[in-house]
Simulated assay, not measured.
Amino acid sequence: MLELDGLTVEYGDLTAVDDVSLAVAEGELCCLLGPSGSGKSTVLRAISGFETPAAGRVRIGGVDVTEAPPNERDCSLVFQDWALFPRQTVAENVAFGLKMDGVGAAEREARAREMLELVEMEGYGDAYPEQLSGGQKQRVALARSLVVDPDLLLLDEPLSNLDRRLRETMQLELNEIHDRVGTTMLYVTHDQDEAFTLGDRLGVMESGRLVQHDTPEAVYDDPADRFVESFLGTTNFVACTAAEPGPRPRLETPMGVGFEAAVEGPSLGAGDAVVASLRPERLSLSVAPAERTPDATVSDGGESAVAVPARVEETVYRGADVRIRLSAGETTLFVEPSVAEAPAVDAGDAVVVRFRPEDALYFDGTGDRCR
């Protein structure tokens, strides 16, 4: 339904969007995820016709709309600030696009009422925006965009102005609405939880570039580079040095232990910098000291694991889990066990952190994956 081919947007000497190519299938909900300033909202504006690309093409439903004005593109945009007309009623706001298209009054009223029912705002047609809560305004903005039956619906961080509980509720409702209407959607957000809740596929952007585009599971479990790994979730990055080249190169670490990395390592030479990513959910923590070989590899349930002696520096209760900060040799690690599984430890306690080399991800000095 949507194809971007080498899309580039420039503002003078600044390249805001850099050679982005992306395909979104019909009926798919794709999330563009990235930090502020990564270019994701500019991509939406270029698709909708509010920005003129310096290069590349935009196709919607197979039609090249790169040079077409916004009103000639079969897409609709939901803004971050809702952009409702304050002097129009809710029903008039929803029906505005239909009125601009020359649809008769009776049909406009019927279709607006149908959309308000879809977003659970029936009974509010005669209200004015100032009488609505933030969540209700967002529903009206969504109904206004859907009522014109666009081939493509663009959403620019539409839930960012809502409080956390309402935002989570609206995420679920938006998913249900998408399932019912089947409209192709491209959703921009900087919130990774929101992207994982909503997206059939995720596109991760950095500095105007589309770094990775895949399913949520693939992006999280198999990140393209260190930026994607750092942006999604939380992790421990441990700076290491390759002591020996070849398959499963041995890494020297600041944790006071060495281990064999689970990578095919012909491209790594002795002395090369390697960063190991150890996600907290893949680390286990125990109080009892463990016997270990000089390279810290021990048998853990029949599998090879790395045992790292550490000391508790701080514990922070966070409701569902406990964040435990540890000093391990010359570096800092943290684990986040659930409250039910967290060991009873205090600052100063000696512990052992275990992980399998296969559960770590490895990145070279440029940030690319070592595989």
Rank of each mutant, 00 (worst) to 15 (best):
M170N: 08
P158K: 12
D163T: 14
Q171E: 08
M185P: 06
H178L: 02
G199V: 10
L198D: 00
Q192N: 06
L155G: 05
D191M: 01
Y187G: 01
T169F: 06
L174G: 05
R180G: 15
L152N: 06
L174W: 03
P150I: 05
D151Q: 12
L154F: 14
N175Y: 00
E176Q: 13
E168V: 09
D149N: 15
G182A: 13
D191A: 02
L152W: 01
D191I: 09
E173W: 00
S160P: 02
L186A: 08
L159M: 04
S160R: 03
L162M: 12
L162N: 07
V188K: 07
P150H: 10
L166A: 10
E157S: 04
D151W: 01
I177M: 13
G199S: 13
L186E: 09
D200R: 07
L159D: 04
V181T: 15
T184A: 04
L172K: 04
D191H: 00
E157D: 09
Q171H: 02
L202Q: 00
T184I: 10
G203E: 10
V181N: 15
L172H: 05
R180V: 08
L153A: 13
D151R: 15
L174Q: 07
A195E: 13
D191Y: 05
L202K: 12
T189E: 07
D179C: 10
V148I: 15
D193M: 12
T184G: 06
E176P: 03
M170P: 09
E176F: 01
D179I: 04
T197E: 13
N161S: 11
L154N: 05
R201E: 05
V188P: 04
R167C: 12
V148M: 13
T189W: 02
L154D: 11
D193N: 12
L166T: 03
L162H: 06
H190T: 11
G182V: 12
L155N: 06
D163A: 01
H178V: 11
P150W: 02
Y187I: 03
E176Y: 01
L159A: 00
E176T: 06
L186K: 08
Y187K: 02
D151M: 12
I177S: 10
E194P: 03
Q192D: 09
G182D: 09
A195C: 13
T189C: 08
V148F: 03
H190G: 00
N175G: 13
D179M: 14
S160Y: 09
T189F: 07
H178K: 14
R167M: 09
P150G: 08
V148Y: 09
L162R: 08
H190W: 08
T169M: 07
V181I: 15
F196H: 03
R165S: 07
L198C: 14
V188S: 02
A195V: 09
Q192C: 03
R164E: 10
L186Y: 06
I177E: 07
L198T: 03
N161Y: 08
